[in-house]
């Protein structure tokens, strides 16, 4: 028996919003520790890794490991039926071929349940090697989203260049070029609003705007985003979801032909 209850369905709605542009279907692996999802997008350019820890749920029970292949379009339809203040409970029997979502309004006056067929997804599972990153940049997630959106107007790629002076985001295209430089916040009063740069070695890498924009769909999950970069390895864009886990996006850099 698997049962996981969240007091706020909005977290699950936001998680789905954050992955549905990249993935059409995905496997949710549930065990004692919580729910994990790891999948590459169709073109194998990016990888999404989601963790929702068991202790972040209002109630969590997982007697045996459960693997649930879900169509994310169908799951989105179902979660649209939940009010933001509703609690949501996901339930599945061992070896079941369906999952049930139960939504309860705050005053318990409305209870709805939606049963969804599970899919047999034979997806390969990739191991993510431990990596020491040369640069990590933390900044307000809304600022990152704004920059990606602004720069996307000019070009298809964004060059991220991190040096001891700060971090620079650049792009160029038919109409011209654009650069945004961010320096580390001088005095940190509010951690959520700070830009914090840690650099061992300078790194410059180029990434596809479209994917960075997909990742920023996670903005509402976290006030801060962390970018981790090293030469010739995928960029990691991490949003920590308060009290429950994280969503990490890995993006392969563009390379000289």
């Amino acid at each position: 028996m698997f049962e996981a209850r969240l007091l706020k369905s909005s977290i699950l709605k936001k998680v789905l919003e954050a992955i549905k542009d990249l993935l059409t279907q995905a496997t949710f692996d549930c065990d004692d520790n919580g729910i994990q999802l790891q999948a590459m997008d169709n073109s194998h350019v990016a990888l999404v890794s989601l963790l929702l820890r068991a202790d972040g749920f209002d109630k969590y029970r997982c007697d045996r490991n459960v693997t649930m292949g879900m169509n994310l379009g169908s799951m989105t339809k179902i979660l649209k039926c939940a009010g933001d203040k509703d609690t949501v409970t996901m339930k599945a029997q061992d070896n079941a071929d369906t999952v049930t979502f139960v939504f309860e309004s705050p005053n318990q006056e409305k209870v709805s349940d939606y049963e969804m067929k599970l899919m047999n997804l034979d997806l390969e599972h990739l191991g993510i090697p431990e990596t020491e990153y040369s640069c990590t940049i933390r900044m307000p997630s809304a600022e990152f989203a704004r920059m990606c959106r602004d720069l996307s107007q000019f070009g298809e790629s964004i060059v991220i260049s991190c040096t001891k002076e700060g971090v620079k985001f650049s792009t160029s295209g038919d109409i011209g070029s654009a650069n945004i430089k961010l320096a580390q916040t001088a005095s940190i009063d509010k951690e959520d609003e700070a830009v914090i740069i840690e650099m061992d070695e300078p790194v410059t890498l180029t990434f596809a705007c479209q994917y960075l924009n997909y990742f920023t769909k996670a903005t509402s999950l976290s006030p801060q985003v962390q970018l981790s970069m090293s030469a010739d390895v995928p960029l990691v864009v991490e949003y920590r979801i308060p009290d429950i886990g994280h969503i990490r996006y890995y993006l392969a850099p563009k390379i000289e032909e």
Binding site: M40, S43, H44, V45, A46, L47, E124, H125, L126, G127, I128, P129, S157, T206, A208, V233, P234, Y250, L251, A252, P253, K254, I255, E256, E257
Partner: peptide, 13 residues
């Protein structure tokens, strides 16, 4: 510039 695949960076488990 060409887009590399992410698959080659990870190991299949």
């Amino acid at each position: 510039m060409s887009q590399s695949s992410i698959r080659s960076f990870f190991t299949v488990t």
